[in-house]
Design a protein around this nucleic acid. Structure first.
Lengths: 395, 395
DNA sequence: CGCGATTTGTTTACCGGTTGAACTTATTGC
DNA sequence: GCAATAAGTTCAACCGGTAAACAAATCGCG
C-alpha cells in the first residue's frame, strides 16, 4: 500500500492539520487550534511557529472579544504565501489565473480566440506567454502550475485525445516548459472538468460529494466524492458525454448510439433550437445566442433546452443512483443556461433517483461560472500546498 | 478533517503495514518486510513480536533457500487468528460463513428457503441460529460479524428499503443481537452487492478498480476504486438497476421508464425467454432453468440473454466512461449465466467506452459464484482486522 | 486603583516509537 | 574449520508529542 510512517511524516501530517485548521476558521488562535485538533497547545505552538517563519501563516492583531483572559493572537493564512498558477486551453480561449494561499483570485487573464486551426506549438507559446505575464503581475512566490485541457489526459502528462482541439497523443508538458517565456515552474496537466469540479469544491464549500457536469463543445464531468476527485485508474474518468440516454437513439461520432452528447451537446442544442447549422459560431457566441433566444422566450429554444435538461437529468440520475452523491452542479456553458436547464434536470432526478424521497438531490449552477477551470487549476496547486505544507517550509 | 496523529497512531499504522506485508507475500521474513516497507529491521522485529504474541502471525520453519547467510524465520498470517463471521439474508436463502485471517473459508452453511412470506423476526431468529452454529463449528476467535442484505442500508444499521424482501425502514441489528442464540458479537450491516464486490476484491486479487454487477431478483452493483469500496454519502451507492437504458422504454416499478431492470432483471429475462409468467419459481430454480434452456440451445432464451447482456453492457459502459474502471465482474445469478452474457457485455463496452481502444475492459464472472456476498461479508471483517490490527493486539 | 480570575502562549521534564550501528546467531561455500 | 553472508536482536541516541507548571495579558469586581 503506502509507505512507512516515520516520525517525520507524523510531524508533516500535524503541520498540515494545523494549517488546514487555520484555513477552515479564519482567524483562529493557537488555543483554538489545539482545541479543534486535539493536539496540545505546546505542539500547536511549535508547529505554528514553523508556519509563521515560512510565511504560510500570518499573525494578526488580537481580535477584541468578551470575557476575561489574555487575548489571543489571531492567525490567518498569509496572502503572501506560495500561490498557484492555473492555465487553461479551451476551444475558443486561453486563460491564466493566480490564486493565493487564502484562496483569493489575485490575477485573471482570458485571451478570447479560436484555437482550433492553430498548431499546438503556437497555442503552447501563447500559454507560456500568459503564464509569464501572470507571474509578473503578482508579487508572489508560485508553488507550481496546473494546466486544464478539454480532453483525456494521461498520468504522464500526455494529451491522449482532445477531440474539439483536434489533438491526439500529444506531449504538451515538454514543449510548454521549454518555451523561452516559461517561468521555471513544475507543471501538471489535468482534465478541464476535473479541475473545474475542484474549483467548485473550494469556492462553494457545501457538499463534499457532487457531480460537476461541464458543458463545452462536448460534455465532461468531474466527480467529487468525500472532498476528493475521482480520477480513475488512468485518469480518464468523467466521460459523461457518452453515457447512453436511449440505446436506439441517434448515432454519435463516437460510433455508439444515443449518447448524451446527441441530446445535450452544444451542436445538438443549437440544431434543436433552429440556429442555422451551417454557421460555425465560436462556442461562446453560440451560448450567448442561446441565452438571448431563451431570454426572449423563443419556443424552439426553450424546447431545445428542456430536452437537453431532461437528457442531462437522466444521465445525472444514473450517476447519483450509482454513487449516492449530494448534489449536481452545472458548469461550463451549462452554467449560463442553468436557469432554463435546472427544472428539467431536477424533475428527472426526482423521478429516477431511488432515494430522492429520503434526501432530494439539489441542482445548481457552478459558483465560478466559466472561469471555474482556470481558477480551479490554480486552486488545485494551492490545495496541494495546504495539504502538504512540509515541502514549503524550512526547518 | 481527520484527527491528530499521536505517536500511538504512527505505531498502529506501521503495525498494519507490517501485517499487510505478511499477507501480501506469504511466507516472508522480518528482513524482507523491512526491505519492502522501508522500516528498519529493528522496528519490524518489535512490531512482529507483538503480532506473534497476539496470535495474528505465526512463525514457521525456515524455508530452505540458496545462498549463504542465516536462514530467515518464515512469517505467515495465523490460521488461528481472529476470524470474520459473514451472514446473508436473501430472497430465497440464508447463509453464514467464517473466513479466517488468512482468507480461507473455514465454514459455510447455506439454508435454502424462500424468505418472502416470513416475518423479519422469524428470519432474524434463523440468522442468529446460523451464526451460533458457525461460531460452534470453528474453534476460532471471531472478530465481528457483517450482515449482507439485498437492499438500501443506512449507516445506522437500518434497512431503508429491501423491495424483494418487502422490508422498509426496519431495524434488524437490534432484534438480531437480542436474539437468545446470538453470539455476543459486534455486527454491522451492508448491501449485498457491496460485500460481494469486496469478496471479489480479496478472492481474485487482480484489478484494484472494477464494477461488480450483481443479478438477484433486482440488480445491484458494488463499485471498487483503488481497492476501496465507494459507499456514497449515505451508504446508498450501487443502485445500477435503475440506470436508464432507453429514456422511452417500458415503465419500471420505480416509476421511471427504461430502467436496466426492465431489460436484465430476472423477471424480464424470464419473460423474454418465454418461461411462463404465472409460475413463481424460487429465484435459484429460475436461474437454473434459464441455464438449462440456454445450454440446450433454446433460441428464445439465447435471445433473451443476449438482450440482457446488451443492456448490462450499455449500463456498464456508462459507468466505465464515468469512472475509468479496469474491469466488469458479473456476480449473483449473472455469474451462472456469464457464459451467455459476457460476449454481449463485452461488445457494448468495446463500442461505447471511449478509451476501449487504448485499454480494453475485460468482463468476467465473479470468482466466488453465488457465495460471494456471505464470503465477502466475512472477508470484510477480516480485512478490518488486517487494516487496524492494533485493536486486536495486547500491549 | 488593585488584585484575583481567566485565558493564552511558552518552557521544561518526560515518554513512546523509530533509527542506526554494533552485536549475536545461523547457515553456505571453499 | 573458517571466512563470508545474511537474519535477527540489543542499545544509545534522536525526534516529536504530552502534561504540567509557569509567565503574560486582559477582564471584573470591589
Amino acid at each position: 500500500m503506502d509507505g512507512p510512517v516515520r516520525q517525520r511524516s507524523l510531524w508533516q501530517h500535524n503541520l498540515a492539520l494545523v494549517l488546514g485548521e487555520v484555513g477552515r476558521a479564519e482567524p483562529t488562535s493557537r488555543a483554538r487550534i489545539a482545541q479543534a485538533t486535539g493536539l496540545t497547545r505546546a505542539t500547536v505552538s511549535a508547529l505554528v511557529e514553523v508556519l509563521v517563519r515560512s510565511r504560510l501563516v500570518d499573525e494578526v492583531g488580537p481580535a477584541p472579544r468578551g470575557g476575561a483572559g489574555r487575548p489571543a493572537t489571531g492567525l490567518v493564512l498569509s496572502p503572501a504565501g506560495p500561490a498557484g498558477l492555473g492555465l487553461e486551453i479551451n476551444v475558443d480561449y486561453l486563460a491564466a489565473a493566480v490564486v493565493d494561499l487564502t484562496g483569493a483570485v489575485r490575477h485573471l487573464e482570458v485571451h478570447q480566440a479560436d484555437q482550433r486551426d492553430r498548431t499546438p506549438a503556437d497555442v503552447l507559446a501563447d500559454v507560456a506567454g500568459l503564464a509569464a505575464r501572470a507571474r509578473d503581475a503578482v508579487d508572489l512566490p508560485l508553488a507550481g502550475a496546473r494546466l486544464a485541457v478539454p480532453g483525456l489526459v494521461d498520468a504522464q502528462g500526455l494529451v491522449r485525445l482532445a477531440p474539439n482541439l483536434g489533438w491526439r497523443d500529444l506531449d504538451v508538458l515538454g514543449p510548454l516548459t521549454s518555451t523561452p517565456h516559461w517561468p521555471g515552474l513544475a507543471v501538471r496537466i489535468d482534465n478541464e472538468a476535473n479541475l473545474a469540479a475542484l474549483g467548485e469544491l473550494s469556492a462553494a464549500d457545501r457538499e463534499r460529494s457532487f457531480l460537476y457536469v461541464s458543458g463545452e463543445v462536448g460534455i465532461g464531468a468531474g466527480i467529487v466524492v468525500g472532498g476528493a476527485l475521482l480520477r480513475g485508474t488512468h485518469g480518464w474518468s468523467g466521460e459523461i458525454g457518452h453515457v447512453t440516454i436511449a440505446a436506439d437513439g441517434p448515432t454519435c461520432r463516437c460510433g455508439a448510439r444515443g449518447c448524451l452528447e446527441q441530446y445535450a451537446g452544444q451542436e445538438a442544442i443549437l440544431r434543436a433550437a433552429g440556429v442555422p447549422a451551417g454557421e460555425p459560431l465560436p462556442a461562446d457566441l453560440s451560448v450567448r445566442r442561446l441565452a438571448e433566444l431563451a431570454g426572449a422566450g423563443d419556443p424552439a429554444t426553450l424546447d431545445a433546452l428542456g430536452a437537453a435538461g431532461t437528457a442531462l437529468g437522466i444521465a445525472a440520475a444514473g450517476v447519483v443512483n450509482l454513487l449516492d452523491l449530494d448534489a449536481v452542479v452545472l458548469g461550463g456553458s451549462f452554467a449560463a443556461l442553468a436557469g432554463w436547464l435546472c427544472a428539467a434536470v431536477e424533475r428527472e432526478l426526482a423521478t429516477r433517483v431511488l432515494t430522492a424521497a429520503w434526501s432530494p438531490v439539489p441542482v445548481r449552477a457552478c459558483a465560478l461560472g466559466t472561469r471555474a477551470a482556470v481558477v480551479g487549476a490554480a486552486g488545485a496547486v494551492v490545495r496541494e500546498v495546504q495539504s502538504a505544507p512540509a515541502s514549503w517550509v524550512d526547518g
